[in-house]
Amino acid sequence: MYTQAMDTAPKEERAAIRNADEVVAEQAFEAALDNEGFIEAKDWMPDHYRKTLVRQISQHAHSEIVGMLPEGNWITRAPTLKRKAILLAKVQDEAGHGLYLYAAGETLGTSRDQMLDALHTGKAKYSSIFNYPTLTWADVGVVGWLVDGAAIMNQIPLCRCSYAPYARAMVRVCREESFHQRQGYDALLTMMQKGTDAQRAMVQDATDRWWWPSLMMFGPPDDQSPNTAQSMRWGIKRITNDQLRQKFVNAAVEQAKILGVTLPDPDLKWNEARGEYDFGAIDWSEFWQVVNGDGPCNKERLAERVDAWNDGEWVREAALAHARRTAARAEKQAA
């Protein structure tokens, strides 16, 4: 999901090589890519690689942070203390993942405030999926099952991204994220197996609403993803959107059966020849509508982020003032 930035933004053009030193540096850079090696923060890299990565990593970070909002609403409304503790841990993880990623983005020479400013002014995007509402408790389970499931599938290849600080952050993210999908599915299983008819209907309703947006998380079809070749070369993407989407559908169909819900797609059926599930056409006009700002919750999500940032300003200032005063006092005593 989090590689959406690669597909929905214009391609950064390669700058003309200016001098002999750069030619040598670029050869070393290309050789590292040829050998599936890593580029470290202070290694030479072409500008369009740097810019593309800043965009990709910062928008990935924004997705983690904005992604806290739909679930955060349910922390105080979780049905049991156990579910509340689990959800709290998960949402805290998302905050942590955002921080790892912002830190990785900063190694490319863009400050945290610059990245946040791009989010708050609407210049930077985040994953389209977080612009859908979480209407019932079953939504929290389905977000874990489908949304985190899709995210994990998308993020695992990023652990081998050519930009080392990003790859290292992704190793940590993926290790922590594996419980996120399981806890969601577990919550849904409880509702399906031990719940009332009304609760089972709630799970089905949430599945119906989240299924198609989850498939859109993988980004536009391959023939409409002009940046794919470059992203593959740079190891920002290792598997195409359509391949990942197919893999996700294959896994989800079996999971839905065990859960006892139906997926809202009459065209979903096993294709013996392909050895995979066929599925219906995705409404890409909905995807672009949400990406371009007209999803069900775009305004609400962004407004909530901006409010949180503005409300926290006095805390940030006070902490800095306290640190400066303490440092000044220590200096005076030492003198």
Partner: peptide
């Protein structure tokens, strides 16, 4: 990894 903080305690 890294993080932002106002002082060492934080």
């Amino acid at each position: 990894g890294s993080l932002h903080a106002a002082d060492s305690k934080m």
